[in-house]
Amino acid sequence: MLSFNSVSFTYQSGGNILDNLSFNVRPGEFISIVGVSGSGKSTIFRLVTGLDEPSAGIISLASDQNNQRLGKVGYMPQQDLLLPWRTILENACLPLEIAGMDKREARNQVMPLLHEFGLAGTKDDYPAKLSGGMKQRVAFLRAVLSGNPLLLLDEPFSALDAITKLSMQEWLVTQWERRKSTVLFITHDIEEALFLSDRIFLLQNKPVTSVDVIEIPLGRPRTRSDLHRPEMLLLKEKLMSRLQSEVTV
């Protein structure tokens, strides 16, 4: 689906972020990326989306034939970035319009999805009227409608309150299972990563030279109580201490 092959990246202003990093993402996987603040998680997304190019190494994307990654992945930024002058329906239509679809056709295609995404009845509302959780749903729907099987979500729930966050996590899993998309998910919340992911990538060192891959020993569907199993508690402890050691480096 996606692979990084000895990728290095340095910002022009001098920060060396990735050094000879390699990893692989399989189709249909749910992968969480965790790492301390400033370790380079968002930078990895910028590289995958094609906003930045690696200074060395190869990034290959299944949907990408001619080495042009812009427009080939669905990207959901941390802030919802909805357009305030567009209604919910119109916001969701944006990627289709950009892809050149006729406005009416785009509407017809998006309309049934609003219900499926738990946005029924908000179609003519403006984003300012919606709660944080609802806005994130719209942003997610918009990412899905980019039509790309690989979705990148950058801390989508970090601004939500604890309860909304939990229900959005469950909602996200349902959507992911139904759409069979591949998800890369950045988070600071270990529990969130454990609950959602097939595998967790923990960024190591600074600059990042490798990812520590952690397989989650849980099947699906999962429940919250699965997180309280002894092996999961151990895993959580392990992840916590790894992150802490990264901070002190």
Binding site: L70, K72, L83, W85, E97, S146
Partner: peptide, 26 residues
């Protein structure tokens, strides 16, 4: 205009024209 918004448009494969009419003008 916001830089993040421009980048979001880019990730959707938007052209300069898309960005101008769908974002800058409004």
């Amino acid at each position: 205009d916001k830089k993040e918004m421009q980048e979001l448009f880019l990730t959707m494969g938007a052209t300069k024209k898309d960005y101008f009419f769908k974002y800058s003008v409004p």
